[in-house]
Each structure stands twice: as structure tokens, then as C-alpha cells.
Amino acid sequence: MMMKKEHVIGLCLILVIAGICGIAFWLQPSSTPQKILTNESLQEQFQSISGEVAGGSLSYKIEFTAKKPNAPEKVAVYKTVQPKVTKTNAIAFAKKFNITDFNEPKEGDSVISVSSKNMTYRVMLYKNGGSVYWDSERSDTPNGIDITENLPTDEEAKKIATSFLKERDLLPDGAFVGGTEHRKVYKSNKSNGSKTVVWEDILVWYTREINGMKVEGTQFEIEIGGHGDVIRFFSNWKDYETIGEYPVKSQESSIETLKQKGISTAAGPDKPDTISINEIYLGYETTAVAYKEEYLEPVWVFKGEALKNGTSIGPVKEFVPALTEDSKKSLSSI
């Protein structure tokens, strides 16, 4: 039976639509029957919580608009190399910042401190890896030097920072500039409700990728003040050595975990009604310097926006550990 041309065109359109729907269905996380997690579904996960709590609410839904990434079954896991930190190291580090007239270094369980005699300049070396330097007279303190008009441009600040680090052999291999931020101290004028910037510097931060995956967490940051002076430096740089590849959870499994965990950034005062996750990727998360890191942990990263009435009220970012339980058990025995 011959079909009419119109019928053929209509059938094709139906097939195309069905195909698109099929592809869309395939892209949808298999364990998530719906794209949108409703408040009701979250409530099932938090049976013991009811009503609002100050500082947070469960009255939001989670939307996943992110594309499903290509998830490997295994990823490389790296053991954290514990640095050797001594007073001698700390003094040598202090001298890199021209601190030569210093008090007796103080050593504790987690850090060794060296301060200038006048307590203005100080460095600390963390035993878990990392270091810090700052000029306490200028950092975060209005001083007439670190003001907007005295600052270099962001690009100049990056060059100053990189040059400063290289001159002191402080820029490790693999580190690259991740971005800049302007840190500001404001002064309020209660009479007219205005605020003015009374102190400002430029924070240049560095990050790195390992195994082609982004490392989440502070790596390196250096603050450039007025006249291009370096007034603060903070490093959470750790050295790693590979210990093998280990199985990771699927994206779907991590979403289930996310539902269990919730998104803490959604607990703000503005009470978002929606969390929109628009980026999901596998990365590594380095811990803060206060905590001992045994290995660089792979994580699923969920990034998005907190929305209220369709308007973004701030970014959200949540990490879900990616290693399977068996992988963790294996690592714990290393």
C-alpha cells in the first residue's frame, strides 16, 4: 500500500521524536526514575527531620540538568607523601620571606611556627603538608597601602605571584593559575547606608590536575597588595605517589548518596526552593591542612545553583566520595 507523502513525513517526525525521547531517556540516570527530586522524596530520606530549622530548610527540590559524564570503572588513587617538617625547614622557609630576626620557632603536633620579633611577619609549616606566610599588619587590615588604586591589574597580579613563587622555588610542578579574587574590607556608613572599600588585595590561586582530573580544595594562594607587594601566602600543596587503580562508584550510585547526604549549601537563610545541578564530574578532593590525608580521594563533584523563584541565590557544590567500599577497604590495608 502506497503511503501518501504527508503520511510518510508525519511518520518520520514521529520516529524522530520517539528517537529523541529514547535518547533522552537513556541519558537519564538509571537509578533516578525522575529527573527532579522533589521535596517529598527528600523527606523520605530524612524521616527524623520535620519542619524548618533555623539556618536551613528541606523545602527545595533538586534538578539534574547535567549531562552524564563518561565515568570510568576505575581511577588512579594516589598516596599522600607525608612531608618532613623540621624547625630547620621552618627557619629556611621564613628566610624566603625575608624573616631573619625571629623568635624561637614553636613546634606542635601539627605545625611549626616562626614569627618575627615584632610579631608582624610569620610563617608556619604544617606537618600534614602546606605552609603559610603573612604580614599581619597589612593582611585584612586597612593601612592606606592596600587600596584599590594601588593594586596591579589581575593579569599583573598573576605575573607578580608566579614570579614571586618561582624566585623562591615555591611554585611546584603542575601548579597553574586557577583564577583571581579581590578580597575587600568594607566600611559602613550608617548615616546614609552606603559602604566603601577601605582595604583590598588580589588573591591569585593556583590549582592542578592529576590524571586528567581536577583537584578540589585549596592548593596554592598568594595575595598581592598595594604596589604589588606580596602580603600573604597559603599553600595546601601535597605530594602524591600512585598506588594503583581502584573501582569507583557509578554516577547513579553517587546520586543516591547525595540524596542521603543532602546538599548542605541549600540550608541558607534565603531558603532556596530549587537546587539545580548542572555539572557532574569525577575529581579528587584534598583535605584541609588540619587533617592528615592518607590518600587523595576521588570524589563525584556536583555543581550547580541554588535558586529561589527561578533566580540564582548562589552556587552550590557538593562532593560525594567515589571509591567503592571495597576500594576503601583495600586502601586502608596499604
Partner: peptide, 10 residues
Amino acid sequence: EWENFECITS
């Protein structure tokens, strides 16, 4: 005077 500061950058 006041300031809000990042605790982490990445």
C-alpha cells in the same frame, strides 16, 4: 568595618 573571606579556593 567588615570583611568576608574565602576559606578555600579552587
